[in-house]
Structures are given as C-alpha cells and as structure tokens.
Amino acid sequence: MKAYSQDFREHVLQAVDSGYPRVEVIRLFGISLSMLKRYEKQRREEGHVRPKAIPGRPPLIRTQVEAGVLPQLQAHADATLEQHCAMWEQTHGERVSRWTMSRAIKRLGWTRKKSRLGQRSAMQRSAPRGARTHESFRQTNWSFLMSAVPILP
C-alpha cells in the first residue's frame, strides 16, 4: 500500500490548525484518529510530514537481472526457468532463484506462448473438432435413464 502524499498530509494538518474538530477532519479526509495523531507527532518531532522510507533492504539482484536477461531470452527462447537460472549463473557468476528469474521475465513482458503462425502438426484429425469418436458412446443403451424419470401429463 502506498503512503499518502505530502500534500494530502499537509492539508489534513492545515484543517486541524485552522480549528476544525478532529472528528470532523477524520470524517472529511477519511483517515483514522491514530493516523492524525501520527502526522501531528511527526510534524512536532521532525518538523515535516514527508512519508518515511519503506523498511527492509532494497533488492540487489532484481535490477541486474532485469537489465541483462533480455539478450539471454532472445537467444534461448525455448529454455525453461531452471535453464535460464543456470545460464545466468554461468555467465554472471551469481546464483538466481527461479522466482527472481520468473519475476524479471514477467516485468519485461516476455511470454512463453508460441506464435500461431508456427509449424502445424503432421497428424491429421480423423473427425472434425467436437465430434464424438467413440462408437461405444453411440451404442450405449440410455433406457435406464428413461425409466427413472417420471413422465408428466
């Protein structure tokens, strides 16, 4: 979830500073009382209400993989995720998980779908699509169903 903008935060605090009751400010802006208290505390202690940095370490490998995987995809379009990970490890010396590789490929918009203009199968259909090919289905005696269903006048 993204943080509210600094402009929004300042508007909330301006409404409080101009004398509007907290309950009315909360209802007007659609925020909680605890959020309003946090904004007031942050302004009092830090002198601003800028959004804080998202905790956690930044991804280290993701940008490298996204930047360098496109030539590998173009050269080896039919390779599996595991094969792409192995190729990445051979060329770059870093091991990359399947999930990291999958996300990088997805962000690039690369799809594994084959084109419809490709080679057609050499096998011929014996019947049109949707036709029933099993003779046993046609020869089944369905009379047991008719005896169970009452006929209404």
Rank of each mutant, 00 (worst) to 15 (best):
M1N: 11
K2A: 14
K2Y: 09
A3M: 11
A3W: 12
A3D: 15
Y4W: 12
S5E: 13
S5G: 11
S5C: 04
Q6I: 11
D7S: 15
F8M: 13
F8A: 10
E10W: 02
V12H: 03
V12W: 00
L13I: 14
Q14K: 13
A15D: 10
A15Y: 02
A15C: 11
V16D: 06
S18D: 15
S18V: 14
Y20V: 13
P21M: 08
R27T: 12
R27P: 03
L28C: 05
L28D: 11
G30C: 09
I31A: 02
S32Y: 05
L33D: 15
M35V: 13
M35N: 12
K37D: 15
E40K: 14
Q42G: 04
Q42V: 06
E45L: 10
E46A: 15
E46T: 05
E46C: 11
G47C: 15
H48I: 09
P51F: 05
P51I: 08
K52C: 09
A53C: 03
A53P: 01
I54F: 04
G56F: 03
G56M: 00
R57N: 05
R57E: 04
P58R: 15
P58L: 12
R62A: 10
T63A: 14
Q64R: 06
Q64D: 08
V65W: 02
A67N: 10
G68P: 01
V69W: 03
V69N: 00
V69R: 01
L70F: 14
L70D: 09
Q72V: 14
Q72A: 04
Q74K: 08
Q74I: 04
A77R: 15
A79Q: 01
L81S: 02
Q83K: 11
Q83C: 01
H84A: 01
C85R: 03
A86E: 08
M87H: 10
M87Y: 06
W88D: 03
E89P: 01
T91G: 08
H92V: 00
H92N: 10
E94A: 04
E94Q: 12
E94M: 00
E94S: 03
V96E: 03
V96Q: 02
S97H: 04
W99S: 12
R103L: 04
R103K: 08
A104G: 03
R107C: 07
R107K: 10
L108A: 03
G109A: 07
G109S: 05
G109H: 02
T111C: 01
R112K: 02
R112I: 00
R116V: 08
Q119Y: 00
Q119N: 05
Q119A: 08
R120Y: 11
S121M: 14
A122D: 11
M123E: 11
M123K: 15
Q124Y: 08
Q124N: 12
R125S: 10
S126E: 11
S126N: 05
P128N: 09
P128I: 09
P128Y: 11
R129Y: 12
G130V: 05
G130S: 14
R132W: 13
T133G: 04
T133C: 02
T133Y: 05
E135G: 03
F137I: 02
F137R: 00
R138C: 06
S143L: 10
F144W: 12
F144P: 05
P150C: 06
